[in-house]
Design a protein around this nucleic acid. Structure first.
Lengths: 342, 342
DNA sequence: TCCACTTGTGCAAGCGTTTGAACTTCTTTA
DNA sequence: TAAAGAAGTTCAAACGCTTGCACAAGTGGA
């Protein structure tokens, strides 16, 4: 049925070990033998059985990944597909494949990871989001299994690739301040994600450095969903004294805000200015176009693969935390026209 | 280091074979032995080595998938992430994982699939898009390897899950006709995808059934990119006699059209009505909100996993082609207000 | 009492590779 | 000319698991 190393060996008149050595470019194989074996390999279309090989070498050339559960998943939408694209592209380039599994609950997720790790199904794990007190991280640490986190995990010694989200949020906020805003609100994401914390921190830092009012009422939490934005909008617009600008955790959420404002007849940026994060393709197309911090999602994924593979293959003492640069893209949603006139 | 079946066996005072049988619920194992072994398995945190097991059983419990290359990939964006989510969720539910690999060229892709198939790395392959004359399909057919196609491949006997794109496009076109349009254009996707053909066919069918003009100039091809939409818009708006409505292959493309129209000061739907496909989340949020055919992307992925796994596990004689229903969601971009007044 | 089952478990082969050690055949060196 | 080494290859064990077959002990019918 399937052609094995033995078939190749027989046809080439050598032993299986020789074939194996040819295929791994062992130095002590003669030119002729090598040549001949390679021809036969080609002719027979032989490919080594990954399981058998993995059984010996204890290597799978596979990176594992757990898909976020629907709830949080929806959010990432673009984040998710774009980072996966980066991860997979780079992994393939380095000869690795990517294995995905999904869990329907947190416990499910831990079990899935356990299965991957203990079953020696993958060589390393990529975590797509950074949650606080993540049992998966505890597990991987306990097992001393190679993994990388997109995001960071407090100050623990964990291999990770991240944005400087504090700075990014600081930049976004300062941008609004530079447009003349003095009452600025913040729409956050799920509180269990470190990214929410970091961006909130950057926002607060900017306000306090500029001695602006910090109103607890002007900070709301939500999911990475349009609905959250819609609700946040409703909340803010009903406030007796409301902010004139918002820093928003994700473009998707901003779209929800935008929809709500349009329905109520408010204008952006005049009635409310907006800056958010991720700079997804559609930010540019909305009306008005959205100001957004590009966080280099593809690159986050790309780097994650690269660093994890390096960690697996060789260099155990590499730098632990890698920062992918961000860039604020200013568009209409945050340009204060009145001020520009003056 | 890692705990093997032997460790469990030793600790339980039985042979490895017994442990193996306990784990596979062999009928001839006594209650007590089974109980005891299971306790030890739990205690030691034993998980069977997938490679070793796969080597024997020739099963990997893994489905393979090739990521579309950047060019076409960008397009599907949402299609891609949503179908993967469906695929992975359902696969996990049935005890399968999903392996992704990426190829940078068509030849690369074929090689990647060859590696997966010949290396017995996966039990089946899911193809995310249906291209004409796809060498991957020829290969898989030749190897008689289980696979499923999202889309269809002419009338060949291939397991696939698809929309009725001809009908979907027919519906979209008829909807425009019902709004009083008589000059309707079509913005297509890459010509090497069957989905482009199908939707064009449905469009033509609707026109001819309603005895409307079919102008070759009113059919343009492009990529699944905003730029394509932008270009198409420019082309149409410069025509001496131009269509009053367009059927567009993908929401993303429509966003490009919309942007162009807005820039030029045209109004949708008054100056140009639009209907497209995919009904991505943002269709609802654009201004005006987009009419779009919901093609059930998640379900396409979901079914693909389910049917492929069924095909692998058992039933070789199942129905080959499964149709996921579509639904036209009418929003402002295609509602002819003038006509509604009359 | 004997034979034929049934029940529960162990033995050992084998899945397709890799790899250290051993073996052969040359080549070199003293 | 013998010994030492290099070059090229094969042998056989091992990776961790499954499974057909054999075996032992118990059960029941004639």
């Amino acid at each position: 049925m399937t052609v094995t190393i033995k078939d190749v060996a027989k046809k080439a008149g050598v032993s299986p070990s020789t074939v194996s050595r040819v295929l791994s470019n062992h130095p002590r194989i003669s030119k002729e033998t090598s040549q001949k074996v390679k021809e036969i390999v080609e002719e027979l279309g032989y490919h080594s059985n990954i399981m058998a090989r993995g059984l010996i070498s204890n290597k799978t050339y596979t990176l594992g990944m757990v898909l976020p559960r629907p709830a949080e998943e929806l959010f990432q939408n673009h984040f998710f597909s774009e980072s996966i694209r980066g991860i997979t592209t780079q992994a393939s380039r380095q000869g690795y494949d990517v294995l995905m599994t999904a869990g329907s609950s947190e416990q499910d997720e831990v079990e899935a990871v356990t299965r991957l790790v203990k079953g020696r199904r993958v060589d390393g794990i990529i975590l797509l989001q950074s949650r606080k007190n993540d049992p998966i991280i505890s597990f991987l640490q306990k097992e001393a299994f190679p993994f990388i986190l997109i995001g960071h995990y407090g100050s623990e010694n964990i291999l990770c690739v991240d944005n400087d989200n504090v700075q990014a949020s600081y930049d976004a906020t300062v941008h609004l301040i530079s447009q003349g805003h003095e009452r600025i609100g913040f729409v956050s994401g799920p509180t269990n994600l470190t990214v929410s914390d970091d961006r909130l921190k950057g926002y607060k830092k900017a306000l306090s450095e500029h001695a602006l009012r910090m109103e607890p009422d002007w900070i709301v939490e939500g999911e990475f969903l349009q609905e959250s934005g819609y609700r946040a909008m409703a909340f803010f617009m009903n406030l007796p004294e409301r902010p004139t600008a918002l820093v928003v955790i994700d473009d998707i959420v901003t779209f929800g805000i935008l929809r709500g404002l349009t329905e109520l007849g408010y204008k952006v940026p005049d009635d409310l200015s907006l800056v958010s994060f991720n700079n997804i393709a559609l930010s540019e197309l909305s009306s008005p176009p959205l100001s957004s911090v590009d966080i280099g999602i593809y690159q986050l994924g790309y780097m994650a693969s690269q660093l994890l593979i390096r960690h697996i293959d060789e260099d155990k003492t590499q730098q632990l935390r890698t920062i992918v640069p961000h860039k604020l893209i200013v568009r209409e949603s945050s340009v204060n026209l009145k001020r520009n006139w003056s």
